[in-house]
């Protein structure tokens, strides 16, 4: 299945605004995040939050075709 990953703030500058990822059907969010951390070195030293389709999501969430995953830094100070 294909999912879309969106990045925000300094993650966007380091990685790019968005990328498409082909992964196995039903993969959990946690596993996808592991793949992204492996792929993008800058995520290894940063804390971040993850949302699926606009809502903060549990790592156990099973993903489906077309889901939009968002990775973003925690609050930046308002």
């Amino acid at each position: 299945m294909r999912i879309e990953i969106n990045y925000y703030a300094w993650f966007r500058e380091k990685i790019g605004g968005k990328e498409l990822l082909d992964v196995e059907d039903g993969l959990t969010l946690e596993k996808v995040v592991e793949k992204l951390v492996e792929k993008h070195e800058c995520l290894r030293s940063e804390s971040f939050l993850v949302a699926v389709n606009g809502k903060l999501a549990n790592p156990c969430t099973a993903l489906k075709e077309g889901d939009i995953i968002s990775l973003f830094p925690p609050a930046g100070g308002g």
Binding site: A9, L49, F72, P73, A75, G76, G77, G78
Partner: peptide
């Protein structure tokens, strides 16, 4: 309320200065 907004809302600031851009990373 303003302390909570600054600590919890995913809102980020980038300053553009004569030397270039810099993200404001505050800790609360």
């Amino acid at each position: 309320v303003i302390d909570e907004v600054k600590a919890q809302a995913p809102i980020w600031k980038k300053e553009i200065t004569p030397k270039g851009g810099r993200w404001v990373k505050e800790s609360f």
